[in-house]
Nucleic acid binder design. Structure first.
Lengths: 472, 472
DNA sequence: GGGTATTTGTCCGTATGTATG
DNA sequence: TCATACATACGGACAAATACC
C-alpha cells in the first residue's frame, strides 16, 4: 500500500481537498504510482493526514471525475490507465518570449482608432455581466441565432432608426465580430469577380479584403473635385464603398447632391450596390447629424455598416450590417449556415447595456468628453506655427493636420514613435501604390480618443522638439 | 424515491430556496407525497436542480420548522403526518404554474454540434469573469494583439503540443471567432483562384466558404477505397481539406500510410497545402489519441485548425489556426492589419481557464460524461432492430447509424422534428449536388452532446414509433 | 466452511466561512 | 446589517465485500 506524504500547510490558501487531489494527480501523472495500484482508503488517509474523511472523499471524487482513478465499492480506489489522458503541464515560464512581448513604452497614443477608456462605466459592465452570467446560464453556452440574438438586433435596429434614420428591422441586421469580418462576409455574399470603387486615401483593411478576395479595386481621390458617381460610371464598377458621414481619414462629408446622384447610379443597374461605412457617426460636434445614405435610399441599394468599436470600445468586437432584401435573401442562401461570430455572453451584455439606457447615457457623456478634448487639441495646435491646415474636425475622433516642415512624413512619424509618441501619417491610408494629391508636406492624424489633455500636451511638446531640431 | 421537477426560472424573482420550499410544501399539502415518504437528500436534489446544497437545506429547514417534514440524522428527511396542520402561509394563487401546465413539446436535440451544458463549471466561469473584470480593466477596452493575446496563444500552443503533438509556437497561432471565420481568413491568405479537394460528405460550411470565394472545389467519397493523395493527384488541386482524426460526419480515421502519402503529395509542389481540421479530437474513447497530421509533417505544409466549440461551448466562438512559416509571412503581409475577432474579455477569461488547470479538468470530466452517454446510446440502439450499421463511435460527439426502413431520410428527419426530435441525416452533409455511395437507406447522425439519458431514451422511443407506423 | 468482525465506498445531515448586494 | 447563495469541512449510518476465526 502506498503511503502519501502530503504537505497540507504549504501551497497557499488552496482548499485542503484540492491539495490532496493535486498531489495524488501529479503522482499518477508522473508515473510514481503504477496503474492498477490501490490507493489508501478514505478513512486511512484521513487519519494519516488528520483531516475529515469527506475531505479525502472530495479529493478522490475529483480524481474519479477526471479519470485518474476508479472506485470499486467495498474494495477501494484504484489507479486507472491514464495513457492518452491529456495533461497540461503547469507553465514552465518562457522568459524569452515574455521579454519579447514586454510592451514598448508608448507614452502618448494619437491612434485614430483608440477610445477613451477612463470614462467607461466599468461598474455597470460588471453588474450587467453578473446578471447575464447568473440567470439562464445554460442556454448561454448553446449556439444562438446565426445573425445575432434577436433581442440585441432589435435594440440596435431601433437605435439605428432613431439616431441615423436607417430603415431596417431586426431581421435585416447581421451581427459580426468587427467591421473587417463583416466586409469579409460581404465578399462571400456578393460572390467572386466583383469590381469595387473606393475613396483614396481610405480604409486599407477594406481595400485589402477586396483585393484578397480577388475583386478588381479602383480608387479615386477623396475630397477631390470629381463626383463619386461619375468616377463609378467611368471606372465601370458594380460596387462603391463610401463613408459619406465622415470619410476616413480625410474627415470630409459627402454633400447631399452627390449622395443622390450616387443612389441614382446604383439604382440604374440590378447588380450595383453601395457600401456605406458609418464607422464613427456617433460623434458629431457641429450642426445636426447628417442622415445616412441608407435612410434616403428608396431603391434598396445600400449596405449599411456600423460598429461599437468607437462608441464603446474596439476590443468589444461587435459590428453590424444592414442588408437590402435582395442581398439578405442571398445571404441566407449562400452564408446562412455560418454561425454568428460574436460570443453570446457579449451579445446579452450589450443588449442589456443598450436596452437599459446605459448606451445612450454613455454616448452623451462621451460626446462631451471628446468635444472637450478636441477643443483642447485645436487650441493647442493653433499655438504651433508648424500646424497648417486642419481638417475633419467637425466629427469623429481624429483630426487631420498639415505640418509645415521639410521632413518626410514617414521620418516624422518614426522619430515621434522613437520618443514615445504614436502618431500616423496620411500616407499609411493610401490604397495601393497610387499617389493622390501630388507633392505635399506631411499630414498627420491626431486621434484624440485615448490621450487625456496632459498626454496630448506632452505629445505636442515632443513634436515641437522634433520639428525644431530639424529646422536647425 | 420521489423525483421533483421544480421550475426555478418561473415565479419571478423569489429566492431559490423559497421556490423549492413552496413547491414541496404544496406537494405535501395537496397529498401528492404520502406521509412517511422519504424526500431526496439535499445533495441529490441540489444536483438535480443545479443549485447549492445549502439552498436546498434552507428549503428543508423551513419545511422542518413548519412541521411538514422531520429530519432523521444520517437517514434523511421524511414527510410528516400533516392532518390537521394549519397552512402557515396563505397559498397565493400561482397563475404561472397553471399556465405552465400547457406543457411545451418535448425537445430532444441530437444535433452533432451541441455540447453538454449541464456539466459546465459555471461557478468557475463566474469567478474568473469577476477577476478579469476587476483588475487591469482599462486595458481590456483597448485593441489587443491582432493574432490574439500572446498569453492565451501561449497556453494554447502548449496544450496543442502536449495533447496533439502539434509543432507550434505562440507566434504561429492565430485566434478567430470560430472555424468558419478562420476558413474565411484562410481564403484571404491563400488568395483567389485556388482549387481545393474535400471529402464528401463533409463540412458544408467550409465547402460553401471555398465556393463563395470563387475556388474550384472538387470532392471525393470519404471512407471510400480511393486514397486521398491519388484523388488529389488526379483532380489536380493545390489544396486538400481533411479531417484525419475523425472525419465529419463519417467518423472515419485516416490511416497512417495515407497520411504520409498525403504529406508527400503536398511536399512535391511549393503551392500545395493541406488543411487539417481537428475539430473534435479532444474526445476519444478507445485507444490512444492519434497524433495530428501536422505533428508528422516535416515540410511545413499543414494548416492546422482547432476550436473550443466542442471542448467548451459553441457559443464561446474561439478557434485557432496554426500556419506554416510561408503562410504566416503571407498572412502578416496581406492580412496583418485585421483586428482579432475575439473580444478581449473572452480571451482573458479563457486564458485563465486554461492556465489555472480548469480546462484540463473539464476535458477529463467531459470525456467521462460523453463516454457514458455514448455507451448508453449504443446500448439502446442495439436493442432496436431498425438500427443497422453503426459508425464513428470511437471518438467525437456523434455516431452514424444506418436505419432499416423504406422511408426516405429527409422524410424520417422531418417526421422526427414534427414530434420534437431534432436529428439530421447524412444527406445534409453532402457537398454540392454530387451523390456518394449510391442508393442506401437513411443514415442518421446521433449527436449525444446535448441530451441526457432520459432525453435520448425519449428520442429513441419517438423514432421507434415513427418507424413502426411506417411498417404498417 | 460458515459465521463474524473489519474494512470499504457511499450515502447522509450538519456547521462554518465567505462573497455579494 | 442582513438575506441569499455557495464552498469547504466535519463525522455518523449503512450495505457490501473481505479477512479472519
Amino acid at each position: 500500500m502506498i503511503e502519501f506524504m502530503i504537505d497540507l500547510q504549504g501551497g497557499g490558501k488552496a482548499p485542503l481537498y484540492e491539495k490532496i487531489y493535486g498531489y495524488i494527480r501529479d503522482e499518477i501523472a508522473e508515473g510514481r504510482i503504477r496503474r492498477g495500484e490501490k490507493l489508501p482508503s478514505t478513512r486511512l488517509l484521513a487519519e494519516n493526514l488528520a483531516v475529515s474523511r469527506s475531505t479525502v472523499e472530495m479529493a478522490y471524487e475529483q480524481l474519479l471525475a477526471e479519470g485518474y482513478i476508479s472506485a470499486e465499492p467495498c474494495r477501494g480506489f484504484f489507479v486507472c490507465d491514464i495513457t492518452g489522458l491529456y495533461r497540461l503541464r503547469q507553465s514552465v515560464s518562457h522568459p524569452q518570449t515574455e521579454a519579447a512581448h514586454g510592451r514598448e513604452r508608448v507614452k502618448v497614443d494619437f491612434s485614430p482608432n483608440a477610445v477613451d477608456t477612463r470614462a467607461f462605466p466599468f461598474h455597470i459592465l460588471r453588474k450587467i455581466n453578473r446578471t447575464v452570467l447568473s440567470d439562464d446560464t445554460e442556454e448561454l453556452l448553446e449556439a444562438g441565432d446565426r445573425q445575432g440574438e434577436y433581442a440585441l438586433r432589435n435594440v440596435i435596429a431601433r437605435y439605428l432608426h432613431q439616431a441615423r434614420g436607417v430603415n431596417c428591422r431586426a431581421a435585416d441586421l447581421i451581427l459580426g465580430a468587427g467591421n473587417e469580418y463583416l466586409q469579409l462576409l460581404l465578399t462571400q455574399i456578393l460572390g467572386a469577380g466583383r469590381t469595387v470603387l473606393m475613396e483614396n486615401p481610405g480604409y486599407p483593411q477594406a481595400y485589402r479584403t477586396f483585393c484578397n478576395a480577388g475583386y478588381r479595386v479602383k480608387t479615386f481621390c477623396a475630397g477631390g473635385k470629381g463626383a463619386v458617381c461619375e468616377e463609378a460610371q467611368r471606372a465601370g464598377v458594380d460596387l462603391v464603398y463610401v463613408m459619406p458621414s465622415h470619410q476616413f481619414p480625410m474627415g470630409t462629408v459627402m454633400p447631399l447632391n452627390q449622395r443622390i446622384k450616387l443612389l441614382e447610379w446604383a439604382a440604374a443597374d440590378e447588380g450595383r450596390f453601395l457600401i456605406e461605412d458609418d464607422h464613427d457617426s456617433e460623434f458629431r460636434y457641429r450642426g445636426r447629424p447628417i442622415p445616412s445614405l441608407q435612410s434616403i435610399d428608396c431603391h434598396e441599394k445600400v449596405i449599411y455598416l456600423g460598429t461599437f468599436s468607437k462608441s464603446i470600445a474596439p476590443s468589444l468586437r461587435i459590428s453590424y450590417m444592414v442588408l437590402p432584401p435582395v442581398l439578405l435573401e442571398r445571404y441566407q442562401r449562400v452564408c446562412g449556415f455560418y454561425s454568428v461570430t460574436v460570443p453570446r455572453v457579449q451579445q446579452e451584455t450589450l443588449c442589456m447595456f443598450i436596452g437599459d439606457g446605459y448606451f445612450e447615457r454613455h454616448l452623451n457623456k462621451m460626446r462631451g468628453v471628446y468635444r472637450d478634448k478636441r477643443d483642447f487639441l485645436l487650441r493647442e495646435l493653433k499655438k504651433r506655427d508648424w500646424a497648417g491646415h486642419i481638417g475633419g474636425e467637425s466629427a469623429g475622433l481624429h483630426i487631420l493636420v498639415e505640418v509645415r516642415t521639410a521632413m518626410g512624413e514617414k521620418e516624422l512619424c518614426r522619430r515621434a514613435e522613437e520618443r514615445g509618441v504614436r502618431i500616423s501619417g496620411l500616407s499609411e491610408y493610401m490604397l495601393g501604390s497610387e499617389i493622390c494629391g501630388g507633392e505635399r508636406g506631411p499630414r498627420l492624424l491626431f486621434g484624440y480618443g485615448k490621450p487625456d489633455e496632459a498626454e496630448m500636451g506632452q505629445g505636442l511638446f515632443i513634436l515641437d522638439c522634433i520639428l525644431k531640431e530639424e529646422q536647425k
